[in-house]
């Protein structure tokens, strides 16, 4: 018998529907977005540098095309995305192998969770990523 139930899967809204939810959910979403951004940059980077095989003129033309202020800001965003993705990746690698989340415990209300247990690490990740991004920003400003 065909189901007459109505589909109710949140889809992509489930990533960003974090208005009243946890901090780690934002990190999860940001990690995915920065990952996709880095992938897009990587593909573009391969395309631009591959013009070198067509000769110096093509290379210069390609480099001129990506030298405007918009691309400078874009490059900085790539760097900031890299800073977050790398540092948060270390956090995830540790947690996803069962470290820093503690052993199973007796659930006594108010419940302590693995999310709370690793929260200091999550905060530290944001601080370290922020410092790296800031340092990179100063570097970008002084170089240009």
């Amino acid at each position: 018998m065909a189901s007459r139930a109505h589909p109710n899967r949140l889809g992509i809204r489930g990533w960003v529907g974090g208005g009243r939810w946890g901090f780690e959910r934002y990190l999860y979403t940001l990690h995915r977005i920065t990952g996709l951004g880095l992938l897009a940059y990587f593909l573009m980077h391969i395309f631009v540098t591959s013009t070198r095989v067509l000769g110096p003129a093509s290379w210069k033309q390609a480099m001129d095309a990506v030298s405007g202020p918009l691309f400078a800001v874009g490059e900085y965003l790539v760097f900031a995305a890299f800073a977050f993705h790398a540092v948060n990746g270390v956090r995830l690698a540790l947690i996803e192998h069962g470290f820093l989340i503690g052993p199973p415990i007796e659930p006594i209300y108010p419940y302590a969770t693995s999310v709370g247990r690793q929260r200091p690490l999550a905060v530290a990740v944001m601080i370290v990523a922020g410092v790296i991004a800031l340092w990179g920003g100063l570097d970008f400003l002084t170089l240009r």
């Binding site: 939810w21 946890g22 996803e96 989340i101 693995s114 999310v115």
Partner: peptide, 21 residues
């Protein structure tokens, strides 16, 4: 990838995120 929401909303303190890791 440890969004942690399952553990935050669990009404019995089961902490599924911990179990999965």
């Amino acid at each position: 990838h440890f969004a942690g929401e399952c553990s935050q909303v669990c009404p019995k303190g089961v902490d599924p995120a911990k179990a999965i890791q």
